[in-house]
Design a protein around this nucleic acid. Structure first.
Length: 466
RNA sequence: GGCCACGUGGCGGAGUGGUGACGCACCGGUCUGCAAAACCGGGUACGCCGGUUCAAUUCCGGCCGUGGCCUCCA
């Protein structure tokens, strides 16, 4: 394999060369949405980032050799609360929210994961290799979990490595704990695998009574069922490192008796909005849905990828505007050529293979676009255009024609393209007749429609004013 | 209170122990009937204080700032 991919692994806090456990089936699991509300831009970061990684892995190992699992959490106390609040059934709420989520991420140019399992389908699932109830039974049988007052708890003291991912010791965690410890816990850090359900809450029959799973067990069950006891990459937001991923590791490794769960643990950084933390109390929750009312999906996507996935990021309107300009300029260069015949640029790929360095990859796209200016012509020019297009497309960018991109701007929906075209023709005629008063009048008329003209060697093009 | 990240020019944002990436904006020029676009050229940087080193933006320590986790949260 010519391309050497390096990824930063949170567990070892180091960048390591990625070697698949099985090159014919590279397996990645990413924690997906809890479906109780519209997804916000912070939710979009891991979705876009790991989609980019998925695409890169498919390029390196072949499309048929990558399995990407992103779960859907459809059993959760927030869901119960929201459903009750709205007076709808839990099922109706989760189905509706999930459908909206799918629309949102498609608009952001994300490929569908190979499998999108729902937590509720893996509580008890006899046809799966493993499910949550069986996993918990194993943990109890193996001495890693115990039953107390209708709950099943994981005993962290049975896991010598507990805390390794988040680099904190049990002593530190106890010392820093702010929350009262449930009296039935043997150790303060023991966490819930199964809990009883009150009337009205989702419930499944289990050896421990009618109840529902704790938060962490779903990911251990679904990754185990769909990817196996150990797999290559586990991803998610950095806020999930503790306790979620730490607990997943404890569960999976204890149940399966393995030295590791995932070979690489990848975490994306947090996102702020206009310099402030995004919080409901600040009223600055930016949903994907809202953004799509103002910006093409590709603009949102490029804006996300202009920052390295591990860096903290500030999401701003100014940044979106810059991303829009960059994308528009690239489309102007590539034009309406849709032939996906090029190959991604080697330097572009090299940047991506360095821990998914998308900002550096974007720089390479600028480099290719720059080399297209001026001198290149004929076959060389076509090859460069296609390299630019093929490279960008690997990241889910420049997937349209120039015209489609312009039309995809939400602000363009009120623009009558045919009328614009005829006005441009009329202006061209006036200019040929050197009737500049008339040509300027037409330009002003178009400007009032929100259309900005750009005269070039090969005629006049236009875009939406901002 | 404990643990952990991040802090680069007007803005965004890579990277590196020793020649000031890249983009946006800005300024100057070419082109254009004019403007826009395009093209050519230009400037400004590594939070603060120490330490290691021939040499630090890059390594180490402290401080300050921002954010994350410790509780359901991407």
């Amino acid at each position: 394999m010519a391309l050497e991919l390096k990824l930063y692994d949170t567990l070892t806090r180091s960048k390591r060369v990625f070697a698949p456990l099985d090159p014919t089936n590279v397996r990645m699991y990413v924690c997906g949405p809890t479906v109780y509300d519209f997804a916000h831009i912070g939710n979009a970061r891991p979705v876009i980032v790991f989609d980019a990684l998925f695409r890169l892995l498919r390029h390196v190992y072949g499309e048929a050799h990558v399995t990407y699992v992103r779960n859907v959490t459809d059993v959760d106390d927030k869901i119960n609360a929201r459903a009750a609040e709205r007076g709808v059934s839990i099922r109706a709420l989760t189905e509706e929210t999930y459908a909206r989520f799918k629309e949102d991420v498609r608009a952001l140019g994300c490929l569908e994961p190979t499998v999108e399992p729902r937590a509720t389908e893996y509580v008890v699932n006899p046809s799966a290799k493993i499910d949550m109830v069986r996993l918990i039974e194993r943990l109890i049988a193996g001495g890693n979990a115990y039953v107390a007052e209708g709950h099943v708890l994981f005993a962290v003291s049975t896991m010598p490595d507990y805390g390794k991912l988040s680099r904190r010791s049990l002593d530190e965690m106890e010392a820093g704990a702010r929350v009262e410890v449930a009296p039935y816990k043997r150790h303060p850090m023991d966490f819930v695998l199964w809990k009883p359900s009150k009337p009205g809450e989702p419930a499944w029959d289990s050896p421990w009574g009618r109840g529902r799973p704790g938060w962490h067990i779903e990911c251990s069950a679904m990754s185990g069922a769909l990817l196996g006891e150990t797999f290559d990459i586990h991803g998610g937001g950095i806020d999930l490192v503790f306790p979620h991923h730490e607990n997943e590791i404890a569960q999976s490794r204890s149940a399966f008796r393995t030295p590791m769960m995932a070979n690489f643990w990848l975490h994306n950084g947090f996102l702020q909005v206009e310099g402030e933390k995004m919080a409901k109390s600040l009223g600055n929750f930016v949903t994907i849905r809202d953004l799509l009312k103002d910006w093409p999906g590709e603009v949102i996507r490029l804006n996300m990828l202009r920052t390295h996935y591990r860096q903290p990021m500030d999401w701003t309107t100014k940044g979106l505007e810059e991303s829009r300009k960059v994308l528009a300029a690239w489309y102007e260069i590539v034009g309406d050529d849709t032939e996906p015949e090029g190959h991604p640029d080697p330097q572009f790929l090299h940047a991506l293979c360095d821990d998914l360095n998308t900002p550096a990859a974007v720089t390479e796209l600028h480099r290719i676009a720059g080399s297209l200016r001026g001198h290149a012509s004929g076959a060389a020019q076509l090859a460069l255009k296609r390299a630019l297009k093929a490279s960008a497309m690997l990241l889910g960018l420049l997937t349209q024609t120039r015209r489609e991109f312009i039309a995809s701007d939400p602000r363009a929906i009120n623009v009558d393209e045919e009328k614009v075209a005829s006005l441009i023709q009329a202006r061209a005629a006036a200019r040929r007749a050197r009737n500049f008063a008339e040509s300027d009048r037409i330009r002003d008329e178009l400007a009032r429609m929100g259309v900005v003209l750009k005269d070039g060697k090969d005629g006049t093009t236009w875009e939406i004013a901002r």
